[in-house]
């Protein structure tokens, strides 16, 4: 049987990441098995699908292991302060609405110290894509519990088990007004690429909550044998696709996080509204 031409091509030519990686920056700082690298690759493939000029892409991050991402990618890149990436990004986007602005942030960065910026960015519906690398821990500072650490999990600051209930990042983004909300995992890497691509194509604030593994801290402290074990237990078995959820018996869904595009609506985008305000009100008034 003959293989269809396009499929064959896809199989024989692996993705050329060097097109988007800055030369000489690898190996990256992430630990063996850290999910951040897998997510980075999915992000680059998704950006590639956009077919957009690298000069017009801006990648902004806060502080954390995940926030080291911009250093490796060949775009306009900004590594800011802990929690503040979305605010810096808002400034850039407002000043240059023609640029594609992508924020890479950790769950601690986005939801703890940056929680206020997170909800207000969603509320404004400014055209920024936020990729939240959710490893349920503060990786960079050595494994303290984060706003997404599950109850009873062990962290270096919850040695007796975490008693703080975690956020559902997607529910929060949706409630705050984000017009595109999705979840993916590092394990489902092709699906993640597609989800990020859809997020990038969406006009308005898009949030992708990406479950990935920190084997060094979360894994070790919570008795996972390896990065693979974490990916299987947390990402593969811990999530179900929105496309399948209705077909599955309740016991197969209980306690699992939903994967896929969870929310997508149309609502006026901030920069477009600003441009309208300038044209129709402010400048009209001054005439």
């Amino acid at each position: 049987m003959s293989v269809p031409a396009e499929k064959k091509e896809k199989i024989s030519v692996p993705f050329d990441y060097n097109k988007y990686l800055r030369p000489g920056k690898l190996p990256h700082i992430w630990c063996p098995g850290c999910g951040h690298g897998i997510v980075l690759k999915a992000m680059l493939r998704a950006i590639d699908k956009l077919g957009i000029d690298k000069d017009n892409v801006c990648v902004v991050s806060g502080i954390g292991c995940s926030s080291r991402t911009p250093g490796y990618v060949d775009f306009n890149t900004l590594h800011t302060l802990h929690g503040r990436a979305l605010s810096f990004a808002t400034g850039i986007k407002l000043a240059r609405p023609d640029m594609k602005v992508i924020v890479v942030t950790g769950d601690g960065d986005a939801l703890a110290i940056g929680g206020n910026h997170f909800i207000h960015t969603c509320r404004r519906n400014i055209d920024i894509t936020a990729l939240v690398f959710t490893n349920a821990i503060y990786g960079m500072t050595g494994g303290q519990y984060s706003p997404t650490t599950p109850l009873e999990s062990i962290a270096t600051t919850s040695r007796y088990g975490n008693i703080e209930p975690p956020f559902d990042t997607c529910e929060m983004a949706k409630a705050a007004g984000a017009t595109f909300v999705a979840r993916g995992t590092a394990y489902h890497t092709l699906e993640l690429e597609k989800t990020i691509y859809e997020a990038l194509m969406h006009k308005g604030t898009s949030v992708v909550d990406i479950i990935d593994a920190c084997p060094t801290y979360f894994g070790r402290m919570n008795k996972y044998k390896s990065a693979t074990h974490m990916m299987e237990a947390m990402e593969k078995d811990g999530t179900v696709s929105v496309k399948q959820v209705d077909k599955l018996p309740p016991e197969k869904v209980a306690g699992k996080m939903l994967r896929g595009v969870l929310h997508k609506i149309d609502r006026p985008e901030y920069c477009e509204q600003y441009a309208l305000l300038v044209q129709e009100k402010a400048q009209a008034k001054s005439k």
Binding site: I11, P14, W30, I38, A186
Partner: peptide
């Protein structure tokens, strides 16, 4: 040639060519 190794490698360390 399923590419899964490449897709899930966090370190850009493995690629499979036809």
């Amino acid at each position: 040639r399923c590419q899964l190794c490449d897709l899930r490698c966090p370190d850009f360390a493995i690629q499979v060519f036809d």
